[in-house]
Design a protein around this nucleic acid. Structure first.
Lengths: 147, 147
DNA sequence: TGATATAGTCAATATAGTTGACTATATCGA
DNA sequence: TCGATATAGTCAACTATATTGACTATATCA
């Protein structure tokens, strides 16, 4: 994708596409060929503290129905284990399996490698600026309704 | 989507999702309710100079088959017109219709509005840094093969 | 002119998301 | 404590968007 634009939307998309393509390629080469982007995204949101599906869905920004499908697949592929929530019998807690932790680690290494590439393009100060800017943009409050 | 992370991949995704959600909402409120994200993306790549489908596909970063579907839809909805390429009888040139130009203009206004929000979060210098950084990241050459 | 490349379409499939309807369990309030 | 309501998760149907492979028509090159 050629990028000569100054359209920030196209730039965000191009940068995001490139970053994700690169990291996913590396993760797949590291022995996790069966992981899809949506599944990798959920793995990135899992930690050592088990969480139920709905709370992850909210963080990821998808419906609980979409999350249900991804949970099923991640469980089937052996990256995630489910256990009953002792405090809520409706819920099932997701936790990383051994293989899931390995995937998350490989994913972290892939990201570091791509970010190292990124860092060579920018001064350290600028990297900080960019991260802060993205965080601000991502978290910006809804504007007052315009319509 | 809550964003407390320092994972640049998640930040890029969150920022991109937010930007696109906001702009598409505005475009739809402006009277273009039938435009999908993929279609809006193609419109953003069209200018006054007609282009064939393959060249747009390359810029957008999708296959010519995907582009064919989007072209059909944009034509059906009246945003784009097709005409034969006088220099190549295989090709058909895409051009914005009157409504297509109106859509592109509304889209530009939506982007300006969202970027104005963005600008309030950053110093002007930082905005330049961020744009340059995204452009560099988007255009970074493929790294040497690692596998 | 014949081999090869390119523009575009059609078909099949994969991925990822949505909404709506539903069950089971929690929680809140009278 | 019971009844209304909210929440966790699943199932089904659908939409949107992408892929690859096979194909036709036309260009281009040697």
């Amino acid at each position: 994708m050629a990028v000569e634009t100054s359209d920030i939307g196209l730039l965000l998309k191009a940068a995001f596409d490139r970053y994700h393509h690169e990291t996913l390629q590396r993760v797949r080469r590291a022995g996790f060929a069966d992981v899809t982007p949506a599944q990798a995204l959920v793995i990135a949101h899992l930690s050592d503290t088990p969480k139920n599906a709905v709370s992850i869905a909210m963080r990821v920004g998808v419906s609980k129905q979409a999350m249900s499908v991804t949970t099923t697949e991640l469980t089937r592929k052996g990256y995630v284990t489910l256990s009953p929530d002792p405090t809520d019998r409706r819920a099932r807690l997701l936790a990383l399996s051994g293989r899931g932790r390995a995937l998350k680690q490989a994913s972290g290494q892939a990201k570091q490698a791509v970010e190292a590439q990124f860092a060579t393009l920018l001064a350290e100060h600028d990297t900080v600026v960019v991260m802060d800017a993205l965080r601000a943009l991502a978290a910006a409050p809804e504007p007052e309704q315009v319509g």
